[in-house]
Simulated assay, not measured.
Amino acid sequence: MRSTVQPSLAVGLAVALGLSSCAPVPDGADAALEDAVPAQPAMPPVYETVRLPSAIAHVMTIPDPVRYPVQVAVVNDLARVDQIVSQVCEGEGCAAAAINAGFFDPNNGLTTSYVMQDGALVADPNQNDRLIGNPDLTSYMDRILNRSEFRRYDCGGTPSYDITFHQEPVPAGCALVDAVGAGPQLLPQDTSVEEGFIDRTVARDALGSQSPNARSAVGLKADGSVVLVMVAEVPGVSPSGMTMAEVAGLMGDRGVTQALNLDGGSSSTLMYDGTTHYGRLNSAGDLVQRPVKSILWVANPDWGVE
């Protein structure tokens, strides 16, 4: 299922007035429609904090991902989310929000997820020998290299978003602009087994899905909204955070129909309006600021670079 933007108000009004696309349009009708349909105001991202006894969920809803597109950024060397955002601001325009995204190997700084940026493959897990050459992962490699990803398409000039497996073809009439792999999918169902995260025959649970933890996720609603979620641990509470099922429930309660788990734990970070929220606490109860490989960032059209 692909989440797309809503039809224009002008189209809807034309139908309501009986102006079929097959019927001749009276002279001046276009102007009348333009006068009758005011320009739709921008709907900026909406930030919400959900405080629970053992978790703090930072929820960012982007109701207008056309005006506020959700894009991908990746760095060659690991960097904190706010540092990557600073680079984005220098090169392309500032960000209204950002969240950590794909998996990576902290030992060598190389990706374990596919990442596409502006139509080009900029991070390839096949180039990570510690992943590809790991004998413990050989039986799972086909599934690892087909894990789910968040995608942004250009469909005839209209942005469209999807969450799907890496090898899923691009819809006809669309071009793949950005993509970042992670996984598993949380909604409409959990795909941990299909993606090699869970193997019940050997009690394998690579992400500790059933244990509370700091977590990050991205979701899509039926109305086209994009939702970013970062779950943080609570100081002085142990265990703290959420299981993956709990994250899925939180997102489902907010109308999300498709959801993708992103890198979590110490990587979990969400930045909004100049404030950075971190997910993981160390043994002393201090927030952990861990460098990451890639982010999803929300462009703010009102914050251009002079």
Rank of each mutant, 00 (worst) to 15 (best):
G102M: 00
D223K: 15
N126P: 01
D30S: 13
V177Y: 02
V85L: 11
V50E: 13
T158D: 01
G12K: 14
A245Q: 09
G181I: 00
W297L: 03
L17R: 14
V88D: 00
G102R: 06
I295C: 05
G241I: 10
M242Y: 08
V292P: 14
N128L: 08
I198P: 11
S20A: 09
T257E: 12
S238W: 10
D154C: 08
V25P: 13
A79P: 10
V292F: 00
E149W: 04
S113L: 03
S86A: 11
E34D: 12
D118K: 01
D223I: 14
P69L: 01
A55R: 04
G255N: 09
T158I: 14
V122L: 02
D178W: 04
P41L: 00
P63H: 00
A284R: 14
R254N: 04
H277R: 14
S268P: 09
D154V: 09
P53V: 06
N261S: 10
Y47R: 15
V85D: 09
D286E: 10
G183N: 05
E168V: 12
A120I: 05
R143T: 11
D154A: 08
D124A: 04
A79G: 05
E306G: 15
D136K: 13
T269W: 04
A284M: 11
C155D: 00
H277N: 11
L17V: 08
L250C: 04
V180S: 10
D35P: 08
L270T: 01
D30R: 12
T276K: 10
A98T: 01
V46C: 04
V237M: 07
S160N: 04
D105P: 03
F150K: 02
E48M: 01
G102H: 00
S113E: 00
D154H: 11
T61G: 06
R215Q: 05
V75L: 02
V247Q: 10
D190W: 02
V305A: 15
Q87R: 15
A79L: 02
P171Y: 06
D190P: 08
S240F: 04
R130S: 04
H58P: 06
L137W: 12
P135F: 06
D105S: 13
H58V: 03
G304M: 13
T158P: 00
R143F: 01
R152V: 00
L250M: 13
R67C: 02
T61M: 05
R280D: 05
P171D: 03
L228I: 02
Q83K: 02
A101Y: 01
L52G: 07
Q83Y: 05
Q83R: 12
P188T: 02
V74P: 02
Y47W: 12
D30P: 11
A172P: 07
